[in-house]
Amino acid sequence: MFGRLRTSFSRFRHSMRVEAAPGRGNQTHNLFESAAAHVIACAEDDQEPMDEASTWVSPEALSFGVSEPACRAVIALAREHDESPRTVARTHLGLPVA
């Protein structure tokens, strides 16, 4: 059982490792910096920066990193509009409010 936990943790830790960006020398990118660049590129519908940001960290780490700004944005919008996060998220996704 501990072997499985150690293996899982090792894989997770490896997936969170930040690597140097190609052609940028020793500069490394933080997980949330990569996620922010990816989210901005998605919002601007610009594929090139989106692809570049996705190479800065592992896909698993980027997925985790993107979910954090999304959660924070929903919370901020909910506070701004004085509504629940559920209502704001469903409205912005075009879903009926449950």
Rank of each mutant, 00 (worst) to 15 (best):
M1H: 09
M1T: 12
F2S: 02
G3R: 15
G3C: 15
R4V: 09
R6P: 03
T7Y: 03
T7I: 07
T7G: 14
T7C: 15
S10V: 07
R11N: 07
F12S: 05
F12L: 10
F12R: 13
R13S: 06
S15R: 07
M16R: 15
R17N: 06
R17F: 11
V18Y: 04
V18P: 01
E19V: 04
A20Q: 05
A21N: 05
R24M: 05
R24A: 01
R24V: 00
R24F: 01
G25L: 07
G25M: 08
G25H: 02
G25Q: 12
N26T: 04
N26H: 08
Q27T: 00
Q27S: 00
T28D: 00
T28K: 00
H29D: 00
N30S: 02
N30T: 02
F32L: 04
F32D: 00
E33W: 01
E33L: 02
E33D: 01
A35S: 01
A35Q: 02
A36P: 01
A36T: 02
A37K: 02
V39K: 07
I40K: 11
A41R: 06
C42R: 10
A43P: 07
D45S: 10
D45Q: 08
D45M: 12
D46H: 13
D46P: 13
D46F: 05
Q47G: 04
E48A: 01
E48H: 02
P49S: 11
P49R: 03
M50H: 15
M50G: 11
E52K: 06
E52G: 01
A53Q: 00
A53Y: 00
A53S: 00
S54W: 05
T55Y: 00
V57T: 03
V57Y: 02
S58D: 09
S58Y: 14
P59C: 12
E60H: 05
E60F: 05
E60G: 07
E60W: 10
A61L: 04
A61M: 06
A61K: 01
L62W: 01
L62I: 02
L62C: 02
S63C: 13
S63R: 05
F64E: 10
F64V: 04
G65Y: 07
G65E: 06
S67I: 13
S67T: 05
E68G: 06
A70E: 15
R72E: 04
R72C: 11
R72D: 13
A73F: 11
V74T: 05
V74D: 06
I75Q: 11
I75N: 11
A76E: 13
A76F: 09
A76H: 04
A78R: 11
E80F: 11
E80N: 12
E80G: 04
E80M: 08
E80C: 06
H81V: 13
H81M: 09
D82S: 10
S84I: 06
S84E: 15
P85M: 10
R86C: 08
T87H: 07
V88R: 09
V88Q: 04
A89P: 05
R90G: 08
R90C: 13
T91W: 12
L93N: 14
L93E: 05
G94V: 08
G94Q: 14
G94T: 10
L95C: 12
P96R: 10
P96C: 13
P96E: 13
P96T: 10
V97G: 11
A98R: 15
A98D: 14
A98H: 14
